[in-house]
Structures are given as structure tokens and as C-alpha cells.
Computed example of a mutant assay.
Amino acid sequence: MQQLFDFAFARLDHAESKRREFGESWKQYISQHPWDIDVRNVTPTTFEILAVTREQAPVQLSLAFSDWLATIRAALDNGLYAWVASATGQDPPPLAERIQYPICSTAKEYASQRKRLSGVPVDILDKVEAAQPYQSPYGPESNLFYWVHELARTDRHRSLHVGLGRVGAHRIRLHLPNDVTATFDESVKPYHHIVGELVVGRFTTSKAISRFAIKADLTGVGIDPEIQAWAGFNMAGQRPSLQQRMTYTELFTRNNLENMALFSGIEPLGGFTTLDPADAT
């Protein structure tokens, strides 16, 4: 069954190329400077600096993300198929048309999937259950496969995912009249995605001035890619960037595929990269 596993790992390698394609689409998008900077009066001495979306992210960005999602999902499904085929010694294995890697948020949901996967050996189902999102101590939404499942389901059945900008670096410089000083409001934490507009800074001047007397330099503000439906992701209190999430998802998927191969007595092309088979003996 070596070839079946080779196909599953090839899918995952293809996902990496789709992530790079997504990154290139993002670079092309931001090269057009799709955000404007605006200064808004709150009071005569209080001002807000806003990043305002001038041009929405192109559909090519959403399509690249869609392809990445579908490829990750397919790699998991292919891996489970290869595992079952290896365990049963049959290709196709029993009830092959039902084989799809289950991703469940509750134990009840997984119990239903076990019934659907009645042709899969019980020991495989037990091992797959141990890796389910509902087993995570931080809740299913902290599990990357939960998001693969939810995002891919929306992508397939409803619509492409919307690409956005997210403030990833924050440094603002002000140019004010010589007799005016400013104090920034440090409670503003603008590390968020931009939907329409986002307040990236707030400050108070030493005296009332016109907003047209203020020039804001935001060259120190970095804007990274984001997917709107995934923007709220939280991993054990951390909020990794979208690129980090995509990379972690590929690593997490590879680790699961390598475990499937190890249980099947198969060595992936290029060897094991996320686990040491000796640790399992």
C-alpha cells in the first residue's frame, strides 16, 4: 500500500505550493496599496488614525485559499483510506465509498461517524477518536482540524472565503506643528483584521488644531493577510498569524499522516520528519 500513502503525502506537498501561491497573490494585492490613511476628529484635541480599505482583496486570493483547504482535507481522507486498505489488505477496502476522515466537535458526533465508518477496523477508529477536536483541553475551536473542516465545508457549499488585511506590526509617526505635542492612547491595541476601517491609533494634542495640520506616517504599520472566517482563532491564548496557522496546519496534517503510515508499517518517501519511529517501539 506504499503508493496509496505516497499519494496522500503528495497531496500535502501540493498544499504547501498552494500556500505559496496564496502568499504571492497577497504580495500582488498589497503592492497596489489598497488601504488609505485617514485622520478623524473625536474632539478638538483628540484624533483617531484609521486604516481604510480602498480596494477589496481579489478573488484570486480566495481561490488560492480554497485550493489549499481542499488539498489539506483530501490529504487526510487519502491517508485514512491508505491506512484502512493497509490494515484490511484490500484495495478498495470494505465500504470504501464511506471512508472520509472524521472531524468532530463532540463525542456524540463521533459516535455517529463510527456507525457510518462501519467498514473501518475498530482499532483505527479508536486511534482517530483520540485525535478529534473535542479531545482538546482548550476546546474544539483550538484544534486546527476543526477549522479545516468548518472552513472547507463553508467553501464547498456556500461561498469562497473573504480575504482581509490584519495589522501585524504597529508603529506610527506624527508630523505636527512645532508648538504642538501629542500623547498616544496606549489602550488602543490595533492588532486586528480590517473590515472597512480600523482605528490604528488615537492621540491627544496639547492644544486644539485642525486635522489637516496633522500628517500621519504609517510606514511602520505592517498589514498581513487574514481570512475573515478564521480571524478569531485562538491557540492556547495565542493568536498566530494566518501564514503561521497555515504552516502549522500542514505540519499537524503531516504528523497525522506519518502516524497512519507508521501504524501501517510504511515509511513515507523522504522518511519521517515529525516523529521518530524508534519512540513507538
Score class of each variant (00 low, 15 high):
V221G: 02
S241K: 05
V200K: 05
G165I: 01
W147K: 08
K127Y: 12
G165S: 08
P140R: 06
P140F: 05
A182N: 03
F203A: 00
G168A: 12
L218A: 05
G220W: 07
L164N: 11
R202A: 10
E129G: 10
T154M: 04
H149A: 13
A213F: 07
I223K: 03
E129N: 10
S142A: 15
A131F: 11
G196T: 06
T181K: 15
E197V: 05
R239D: 09
E186K: 10
A169L: 12
I214C: 06
F203L: 03
V162T: 04
N178L: 14
A216Y: 07
P225H: 08
D217M: 09
R166P: 00
H161N: 14
Q132P: 14
S241E: 07
Q244R: 15
D185P: 09
T181E: 15
L144H: 10
E129L: 08
S210R: 12
Y134D: 01
V221R: 02
E186I: 07
A152I: 00
A216L: 06
K215C: 01
G220Y: 11
T154C: 01
G222C: 04
K207L: 06
I227P: 05
G222S: 14
M235I: 05
P137V: 09
V199N: 06
T205P: 04
E129Y: 00
G201T: 09
P137L: 07
R239Y: 12
Q228C: 06
W147M: 06
V128I: 15
M246P: 04
